[in-house]
Design a protein around this nucleic acid. Structure first.
Lengths: 255, 255
DNA sequence: AGAATAAAAGTTTTCAATACTTTTATTTTT
DNA sequence: AAAAATAAAAGTATTGAAAACTTTTATTCT
């Protein structure tokens, strides 16, 4: 732990994928920021920050959320995704990214940015090979390569168009994030925290839909209920003032 | 990315959980080293190293293997586990651990240590609450706390006995590792790489046994075969010179 | 040759996932 | 106010995989 080791170490930053849900469009969203410094100046990217000595990585991830959204956020949940260390991931100095995911309830308004010229919510969709994220003007997508080696080999050679591609290896990070969420849908669907404290089965199916690459009405409500009754707790209330039979209201069961 | 940021960053090290299999005892093993520097001097620990600027984290993890085992290792496989960043995890300076797992075929002989006074294989067992690792003299176990917060709260207060506890938060890291392996047993059992290129169903069940906390003969061979026939490929050969009906030989199916 | 051993192979039972149908509770329209 | 439309709950039937258990086969040991 001698001081001479310090300079030999790579830089560390925290990347946070911030998820939310728009109740008017019924769409899952992520937050992207437009970079206004080098490298990848002018590119859209996942929010990032350098880690400070006194804070834990989780705290740094939450700091990113506060900078973009402002105010204390009750009901949000942050979890680790993975650490990205590939040598090809940054053009200059080596930088590791500790990636986190935060699930925000509902879809908070965004504040004026810090270190970014713009910040917007991008709503999630899906294609055959990947997931898509669009703000109405531009659409970005997750990496298509299936292995890390394949992704970085292509990535290192490419000269990316900033209107079509995210900065750094963020398309890869986003792919890993979506895959992780999809894998946990059956046993620990933390992504549902974007719905807030309570939700209906329809709400939950709206969130599942893009991850499963299936339209909501193809996800059978009855079967969905049966296969999730250990994970969801019936709150005893129902929705009101909506066409059709009132829907029961659920919350995530405590682990 | 100014130089002033460097000193504000925590230290990074690589921790590697190195798994192997002893074909004479039919037991899964991990490598532990006895530390001979501060902090935790004299404690048994998972192999660790500082990360060098030029290498990727995976390469650093492999360097640890080479230092302990020597020689090039064909058929070994390294994968990322998680990054440990809790503020309470190191007593002095903040140090992050990027944890990896390496699955070595069979059980290589150990070389004289680098930066450790001893290095030994510890064979895996299980108890009600945890997994155990013993070299015949001492037995260590994985953390019993079920959440990170609970673990570090206890850990920060405790004054650990070096004959009963591992250095740092390594009991927690080891718990996360065992849980991860158990969860992947049904769809990506990379842990079977400790058996080498080919194995029988009995071999595979011997590896599964401690993770499932079930004696081998309670894991039904017939059912085991059926539920793994997509994951295993029959190599067409059988074992020889052993009592009983010859066993078919399998390999891991390519993902 | 016969016993012991160990694994493959087969059979039955159970349970959960999936597909599909009916009923119920509300709003909207006439 | 009755009828239609809507949307969700609730129920039923089918399928398939996991688990429990039994039988058969191939080898070594005595």
């Amino acid at each position: 732990m001698a001081a001479s080791n310090i300079l030999e170490q790579p830089f560390i930053n925290i990347t946070n994928i911030i998820w939310s849900f728009d109740h008017t469009t019924n769409r899952v969203n992520i937050l992207l920021v437009k970079r206004d410094n080098q490298p990848y100046n002018g590119y859209w990217a996942l929010p990032e920050t350098f880690m400070r000595f006194q804070e834990s990585a989780d705290e740094a991830a939450l700091r990113l959320v506060k900078e973009k959204i402002g105010m204390a956020l009750s009901g949000s949940h942050t979890e680790q995704l993975a650490t990205f260390t590939n040598k090809l991931r940054t053009p200059g100095d080596r930088t590791l990214s500790l990636a986190y995911m935060t699930f925000l309830p509902d879809k908070p308004q965004l504040k004026a940015g810090y270190g970014a010229s713009d910040a917007r919510w991008f709503s999630m969709g899906y294609a055959d090979n990947c997931y898509t994220f669009s703000d109405g003007q531009q659409t970005f997508q997750t990496a298509i390569s299936s292995t890390e080696t394949m992704f970085y080999a292509k990535f290192a050679k490419a000269n990316l168009d900033p209107t079509k591609h995210l900065a750094f290896d963020h398309e890869w990070i986003l792919k890993i994030a979506c895959d992780r969420i999809r894998n946990k849908l059956d046993y620990q669907p933390n992504i549902l925290l974007v719905l807030g404290a309570k939700f209906t089965l329809k709400d939950a199916r709206m969130v599942y839909s893009p991850f499963l690459k299936t339209p909501v009405n193809k996800i059978d409500n009855s079967n969905f209920k049966k296969s999730h009754n250990k994970l969801f707790t019936d709150m005893g209330t129902t929705t009101e003032n909506r066409p059709g039979r009132p829907a029961r209201v659920y919350k995530l069961a405590a682990l």
